[in-house]
């Protein structure tokens, strides 16, 4: 993933950014399904942080 230069560097951050924009916008546009879309998409960047932290926490055997 990292061997592909700049495009590889930006792939995941760009995806998280797009999901964030969709999530931030969704709940202002409506309720119900729009709220669910907001919660689901905005959770992804947080989940990415949590998963990376969990997998590489000091003392955990390397995955």
């Amino acid at each position: 993933m990292s061997g592909e230069g700049m495009s590889g560097v930006w792939r995941i951050p760009a995806a998280l950014a797009v999901l964030s924009v969709i999530g931030l916008a969704a709940a202002i546009l409506g309720d119900g399904l729009w709220d669910w879309l907001c919660w689901a998409t905005l959770s992804v960047p947080l989940a990415a942080c949590a998963v990376k932290l969990w997998r590489q926490w000091p003392g955990r055997p390397a995955a």
């Binding site: 998280l16 950014a17 931030l24 960047p45 942080c49």
Partner: peptide
């Protein structure tokens, strides 16, 4: 990691 993941927010 934390900075880039939450940058838009």
């Amino acid at each position: 990691l934390f900075g880039v993941a939450t940058l838009v927010w």
